[in-house]
Write a protein that binds this DNA or RNA. Structure first.
Lengths: 240, 240
DNA sequence: CGGTGAATTGAGTCCCGTCAAGGAGCGTGG
DNA sequence: CCACGCTCCTTGACGGGACTCAATTCACCG
């Protein structure tokens, strides 16, 4: 857990206050949340939730990056969701988790005991509405990803991925001169491959090709500069 | 519209009463719904909603089959959802549709004007809760489909598809002797291909292979018998 | 019985997966 | 300080599964 969040109790000052499931709450409702919430943190690489295990809590991701993963019996892995700050983990009225939740970087969660959260939903229509809105957004995102997985080439998949990361982190990455952007990839090549339905080798090759064509610059394996997002977008096939 | 639904006003007798968004409503609430709902029907092949068009209504699918589709600029098509009776179409608080909704068979919808439905959600927490539940289920289904699109072979995709249709229509298809099931495919080979992220030729070839191996029998191009669902499930990779 | 769209089947190609080797970055410990 | 080991990443060679293009065949209906 980052130092500034240790013992945090003030929801008003929370970095995800206006985007998370609590976004629609008023000051009074926040006080209720503050009284029952608790923070937890995980180190990079740790499994936060295992598929099929009982889930006694739900949470908002406060800081860090996590993935939602499915592992088939024969070892193939597909990432079905990328969790960034303000994203929600778990679902009410469900005993067992469906997917593994894995901390990619160090992660901080704002947690609620599931049964308590369910009571909250029942008594606070605001929150149910906000949760519905977030879930519908996630559903749209999942469907956009289905288009990527089903119909895009490796090259288009990688370009789309880079633009997705760019979009979801724009607030943190001011444009460099001449509208170039520098983005920080939280995922390794293997994790990117699992998200894009590819192998690590194919991902690496496509990185090299985009680099050779000047569409991206690779500062380090996890830092990429996009000289012109619009040109890259043309390589991504349909937008996300 | 099927004859028995023409002029239908009695929600209690509705075939999707206990599965649709109205499932959580009590008798009194149903009366409110009855006063503002209206039925619409579409012929097979008609487009119910076009992506990017404004959407003035939301609806429950009462009978028939529809798909949610995305068409890329260069003509590739990916089906991102299969809509069967009780499924919901549209979303509150959204002006424009994101995906095309296409009637695959003749279809009957139970519609509400969107603004009216939004008021209903605001005043009836029941319905918001039910809608959240349905949306979370759809999200799980979308993620399961992501695993299929990203990691399964053509053979596994088709086997998974057949089992999906089987599961979603079991109520209508009593097992034949010796636990064989006969299922009716509402989709053409091309529509199946778009749903599975394959081409029509690959789908056809996999149908032939499964048939040659005795895993399915093809009664007609749209009717398939599954002699043993468990054996077929072994060919489907991880379950849905 | 011929016409039409859907489905099947074949032949050839290519993109991506597989297998394998080598390189880069980084923390550890001698 | 540098050798060592580890993990991650890159690159090459090769093969196969799915796509493309093309030709029948099938099913349905007037």
């Amino acid at each position: 857990m980052t130092p500034e969040l240790r013992g945090q109790t003030n929801c008003e000052a929370c970095p995800i206050r206006h985007r998370a499931v609590c976004a629609s709450c008023d000051t009074e409702e926040l006080l209720t949340l503050e009284s029952i919430k608790y923070y937890t943190s995980f180190k990079a690489g740790e499994t936060i939730v295992m598929a099929h295990d009982p889930m006694s809590f739900v949470a908002s991701l406060v800081s860090g990056t996590a993935t939602l993963e499915h592992l088939t019996e024969d070892g193939r892995k597909q990432t079905v969701g990328l969790l960034l700050p303000s994203d929600f983990i778990g679902r009410p009225e469900r005993e067992a988790a469906v997917y593994d939740v894995v901390a990619i970087t160090d992660v901080t969660l704002c947690c609620f005991r599931r049964t308590q959260f369910e009571q909250l939903l029942a008594s606070t229509p605001h929150i149910t509405g906000r949760m519905l809105e977030m879930t519908l957004d996630e559903l749209d995102a999942a469907r956009a990803w289905m288009v990527l997985l089903g119909r895009k080439t490796a090259r288009e998949k990688l370009a789309s991925f880079l633009l997705l990361i760019l979009k979801r982190t724009v607030a943190d990455t001011p444009p460099l001169p001449a509208k170039a952007y520098s983005i920080d990839l939280p995922l390794t090549r293997e994790e990117i491959a699992n998200y894009l339905g590819l192998t690590i080798e194919t991902v690496s090759r496509q990185f090299s090709k985009l680099k050779a064509e000047g569409l991206i610059r690779i500062e380090s394996s996890k830092t990429v500069t996009i000289p012109d997002a619009e040109t890259l977008a043309e390589e991504a096939g349909s937008a996300l």
